[in-house]
């Protein structure tokens, strides 16, 4: 996973709320089985509309998506995160995220930043007036800055530390193998098993 410290980049104003993962990544592409190569799938149906903001050449190369509330609701498909990343986004800003989407994003190093709706509105205005506006997302300081904006955002210490170092979550958990084994030895014996054989 790519580490995330500070990113300065341009933003895309996506003036829509309730952007569910079916829009971010239409289900029909969900039969793909690779880990990369999803840039073409991002908002594929909306990109077919000429007026859609991603079709505006002035926003080409932007790395920060600024969206309305309840971004990433719906399906758990992690494809939505991969599509955003493969397209080039490293940060998504919204007043509120779907839980599963936010979890998936932070696992993969796509920073999901919650900012209040008035700040999002201000970012929309700035990026609409001047698409070259630079926005800085600083994970060290947990702040977002842009002309006239300097606001903090919340992220828990653990996730922040993991993103700053680009660490693999599974390796971190594996360090607690003893605690897991101890827990397993005290589970209720009548809990169901699925019929498969446990190795080792």
């Amino acid at each position: 996973m790519q580490a995330f410290t500070v990113l300065t980049g341009r933003g895309v104003p996506l003036r829509r709320s309730d952007v569910d993962t079916d829009q971010i990544f239409p289900g029909r592409f969900g039969t793909r089985t690779t880990a990369t190569g999803y840039e073409d799938t991002l908002f594929a149906d909306w990109r077919a509309e000429p007026g859609f903001v991603l079709n505006d050449p002035r926003y080409r190369g932007a790395t920060i998506l600024v969206a309305g509330s309840d971004f990433g609701t719906g399906s758990s498909r992690e494809f939505a995160v991969w599509a955003l990343q493969d397209y080039g986004f490293r940060v998504v800003v919204s007043p509120r995220f779907g839980d599963i989407f936010r979890g998936n994003a932070l696992k993969r190093g796509l920073l999901a930043v919650r900012l209040d709706a008035p700040v999002v509105e201000r970012l929309w205005q700035l990026t609409e007036e001047d698409p070259a506006t630079e926005i800085t997302v600083d994970l060290e300081r947990r702040t977002v800055t842009a002309p006239g904006i300097d606001v903090p955002f919340e992220i828990d210490d653990h996730t922040r530390a993991r993103l700053l170092e680009g660490l693999d979550d599974i390796a971190a958990t594996e360090r607690h193998a003893d605690a897991i084994a101890a827990y397993e030895s005290r589970r209720r014996p009548a809990l169901p098993t699925t019929g498969a054989v446990r190795h080792g």
């Binding site: 758990s76 498909r77 992690e78 995160v81 599963i100 989407f101 979890g103 998936n104 696992k107 993969r108 979550d169 599974i170 958990t173």
Partner: peptide, 8 residues
């Protein structure tokens, strides 16, 4: 959960 969590 998402695919990364499945792996986890």
């Amino acid at each position: 959960i998402g695919a990364s969590q499945v792996e986890h």
